[in-house]
């Protein structure tokens, strides 16, 4: 019996009777991070890291039973040792290490290796079997250092100021938005946020993470109040009347998909910045090698292709058909979150 196996509910450890990021309702769930495809509603008990908990609490509501644990702290369930290790994906995100009778498995959730200035830095965990995402598991995806990307973003922002335009940058409201804000230079101009982004900012700040000052966009502000500013919003904010008061504007998107020209054109934004919270091709390969794993199970993304590539390199590898959906999913999910918040406002 494999230490972790795929069931209809999700990734399951039979020995400990616990699931990792399950997609159907279960009794006990270990959660890698707060994105909706990993942290679903309705489980009886949740366990995540201390720093992931506030956002998960915000998303799932007060009634859910959520416990949390320190990074690196070991916990035993029926002879199986579990620990959470930084995945560098968003604040609080973890890879979950599972050890039983000397055999080590790591379920990595979503991860990236470059330190992004706010999320706990990725930690390489040695293991026998590594379960990896492959959202950008193709050799065409190679990220520049984020310092260069933020230079481009700031240059574009300054150019928009010279052209008298408001800068609008779309980003997923949990994770990407805070990463961007954390790396923006508030000396350049004021930073405004969509409500869905600011809700998360408030939670993150309360946890003690530093974010430069931001102003929530609300109904009382008028055209002109945004002069020289940058507005951080989920992509779904663009489709609404909400954006009208930023005219004239220049719209950019920050996502790993922007590496490919076709995807940039599909989004029909003025500027596409290649900035992802997932590993690129080269880091992915470096991580696999670094873990020393002899078996690699590949989940969401270009899993067929990447798994075949690993097998050719001599590793034991196969695809795990999970229901995680990577960066694409995150973009779609935004509307769901905004929907939730609107509901709250009405109540």
């Amino acid at each position: 019996m494999a230490l972790l196996q795929l069931t209809k509910n999700g990734l399951y450890c039979e020995q400990a009777d616990v699931y990792i990021d399950p997609w159907r309702k279960v009794d006990r769930a270990l959660i890698t991070h707060g994105h909706a495809d990993h942290s679903r509603w309705g489980h009886k008990a949740y366990l995540c890291t201390h720093s992931a908990k506030p956002v998960i609490r915000h998303r799932l509501g007060a009634k859910m039973k959520i416990q949390s644990i320190e990074f690196g702290q070991k916990m035993n369930m029926n002879g199986v040792s579990f620990s959470f290790h930084p995945a560098g994906h968003i604040v609080g995100s973890a890879q979950i290490r599972v050890e039983y009778k000397g055999e080590v498995w790591v379920a990595s959730g979503d991860y990236k290796t470059e330190y992004d200035g706010i999320s706990e830095a990725f930690e390489l965990v040695k293991c026998n079997t590594y379960i990896t995402e492959s959202t950008f598991g193709l050799p065409v995806y190679k990220w520049q250092p984020q310092k260069e990307v933020f230079e481009d973003i700031h240059n574009w922002w300054r150019q928009n100021q010279r052209d008298g335009k408001v800068t609008i940058l779309t980003a997923y409201s949990l994770g990407k938005a805070q990463r961007i804000i954390a790396n923006l230079d508030p000396e350049v101009g004021p930073i405004f946020t969509h409500g869905a982004v600011e809700d998360i900012n408030e939670i993150i700040r309360e946890q003690g993470f530093y974010l430069p000052p931001t102003t929530r966009v609300n109904k009382t502000q008028k055209k002109g109040d945004f002069k020289n500013g940058i507005v951080i919003t989920p992509a779904s904010g663009l489709g609404t009347a909400w954006v009208k008061k930023f005219e004239p504007k220049s719209v950019g998107a920050a996502s790993g998909w922007m590496a490919v020209r076709g995807a940039r054109r599909r989004r029909s934004v003025d500027r596409g910045f290649v900035l992802s919270d997932h590993v690129d091709w080269e880091s992915l390969n470096a991580v696999i090698e670094g873990t020393g794993a002899e078996q690699v199970l590949v989940t969401h993304g270009y899993s067929d292709i990447y798994s075949k590539y690993l097998r050719e390199k001599g590793l034991k590898s196969q695809v795990l058909e999970t229901q995680f959906e990577g960066e694409q999913q995150e973009e779609e999910e935004v509307e769901e979150i905004i929907g939730e918040n609107e509901k709250k406002e009405k109540e």
């Binding site: 998909w257 490919v260 020209r261 076709g262 995807a263 054109r265 599909r266 694409q328």
Partner: peptide, 8 residues
């Protein structure tokens, strides 16, 4: 899967 503009 689509090409180019819609490759994902």
């Amino acid at each position: 899967r689509g090409h180019g503009r819609r490759s994902n």
